[in-house]
Design a binder for these strands. Sequence first.
DNA 1: AACCCTA
Length: 409
Amino acid sequence: MYWLLRKRFSLSPAAFKIAHQLIDEKTSGSQPIKAIPQGPLPGLHRDLPQRSSILPPMPSGSVTYGRWCVIGRGGTIVKALQDETGASINVAAPVAGCDERLITITAMENPESRYSPTQNAVILVFNRSIEAGIEKGLDLGSKGSPVSARVVVPSNQVGCLLGKGGIIISEMRNATGAGISIIAHEQVPKCASELDEVVQITGEFVCVQDALYNVTGRLRDNLFPSRISNGAGTRSSSSLIPETTPYERAIDPSSLGWHTSVGVPHNFNRHTTLTQSIDHHGLPYGYDHPPSPKLWASQTLGGVNPRNVMDVGRGLTSVKSSLELGSGGRSAIVTNTTVEIVVPENVIGSVYGENGSNLTRLRQISGAKVVVHEPLPGANERTVVISGTPDETQAAQSLLQAFILTGTS
DNA sequence: AACCCTA
């Protein structure tokens, strides 16, 4: 069984249908909901650099839930999520004959920053929906319990997710371990527009979350006018170096019960709308433990983020170690390493290899997680993020270097 | 810009 994912582009927010029970929740009114982050980050809204032009809203996706409560009594949950992320979250009215509802997420986006309030909000809403499912006592117990999320995308934007011959989508599948597909038109929920496509993401909670971030990141990138790099200064001044790579999560892990303060800038210069649809499927397993601590690890060090620069061929490498927190956050053991390698665009072919074969080998041999990011607008280089145990990372890194040096494409 | 992926 796999999930279907489709995207569509539409200028108007797609409508989602969600089942009846959306509004009932178990959380008592004023009780803080655990999924909800500790609150807005005070003071961060002050000095927002507003250099980029404000663009029209980007519709991206909507979230549908099967019977889980995401809204909260009196909208408390949604409200808290909005406060926290700075994005606005709209839950569409139920549509007859459709058990899903469309949730539209909108926020100003700053192309200069890799932090995206919209993506952040999508992830939080997704997390919340999963939690709600657990609260409802859904059978999440079994380990491989699949979870799914759907993202409604205007048809004209599907290309950026598929890529030529479907390379991008398969790349995302490989990188995240989630099933990602575009669902057949017949299966598109009634609440989505005819002009939209639905991207379905399925798999384990963490994989789906990761894939969601990838997908929304690509959609977001697609909104910004992509200036082709001619070396000439389309690059913004260096004072605004993105803190994270485009498809890496830059969100507050507190939604998962952790609270680390990461200095996430809220720079909203652009309006983005993400709509996402989430099915009423499974649960993450082992939810009483933070799901995949590794994925959050780099955020744990977010405030530090050492950027050690060294030579790798013609590229630059920045290394940062990640921590894996023990239960309760008491112990901290270094078990995971993340390396970012900046690779010039002209050797990227060697990195991918024919049909991505080099990349596949790289992953197989090293066992590391390898993600190749799209170039930033105007940049002629790309970031390759490698993570895994120190050994895996090391292996992947030298293998990558070998591919580049031998020009195996 | 990508365009049809997966089963």
